[in-house]
Each structure stands twice: as C-alpha cells, then as structure tokens.
Amino acid sequence: MASHEFRTDRVEVAFTVNGKPVGLAVDPRATLLDTLRDELGLTGTKKGCDHGQCGACTVHVNGRRVNSCLSFAATHEGAAIDTIEGLGTPDNLHPMQRAFVELDGYQCGYCTPGQIMSAVALLAEPCGESDAEVAECMSGNVCRCGAYQNIVAAIQSVRKENAT
C-alpha cells in the first residue's frame, strides 16, 4: 500500500469492498481500479487497457458488473463493491471459479478475474441461455489467449449446476 503525504485536494469516500466498510480520502482523479489496487492492495482486479475496452477491470458495484477503470472512486459513496477476492479463495473456490479451473477457461489468467466477475453477473442478467447469447454477453471481456470456447463452457456448466 502506498503512503501519501497529507493532501488537501482529496475527497472523502466510504463504501464497502467485499462486505467490509472502507473509508478513504482519495485523489479525485483516482479510478476505482487504481484505488482497489494501489490503496487497498486488492490486485486481483487487473488493468488491461484503462479505457473500458478489455474488461479485465470488471468488478460488481451494487451487484452489477462495471469497468472499474472508467469510474472515479470518489463517485462510489455508499456503494457495495465486490471484487474477485470476495468471491472465493484457492482453498474454497466459488462454483464459477471451479468451473474455470476444470474447463480450462483461461491460459495466462490475466483477464480471468474480469471474466469470472462478468460470468457470475451474467447468470443473474437477462442474457439468453444459448452459447451464442452467452458469447455475446461475454464480449466485453477480451481474452487475447482466446480461451473463449472454454469460458462459455464454464458458464454453461455452472448454469446447469444451478438448475439442478
């Protein structure tokens, strides 16, 4: 975590991250992404483009998936923010995380936290159930390794699991 000299140009903001209350004095220029990573040490959320074009920074704000790189931290007063770290741990994986491991829904793993945050949100969204519809709903998460077929398979397997 970075330490800063006291700066008067900061903005107070309070929100929860993975259920835990957080109070910060942030640089108004700081994005939610950089705040999670540099201030809160939650580096599971990744920076891939910093312009909303790749989806690696996907987190949930009040239950909806968003690009944390295009959002100032200061705008999230009172919000509930969920990141990949809140989903599961290596010893206690969330079903979607387990499905990504089992079905090899990644290669390098860098876009993976964003993919998984999108995938978890998707199952609660009005996205259709066909592979093609899931692929469309996942197209905001670029995987340059091209593990797309397995990503769709992972999501579909969790959907099936949930249905039974």
Partner: peptide, 19 residues
Amino acid sequence: RIEGPLKVTGTAAYTSDHT
C-alpha cells in the same frame, strides 16, 4: 492447471501486482 486456483481467485501475482 496446478496454478489454476491462484489465477481464478486473483491470488496469482503478476508483475504490476507486486509492490
């Protein structure tokens, strides 16, 4: 992949994740 659980939980530390 044996490192899979680290990757899917955001635990795997990539270069810019180090501080």
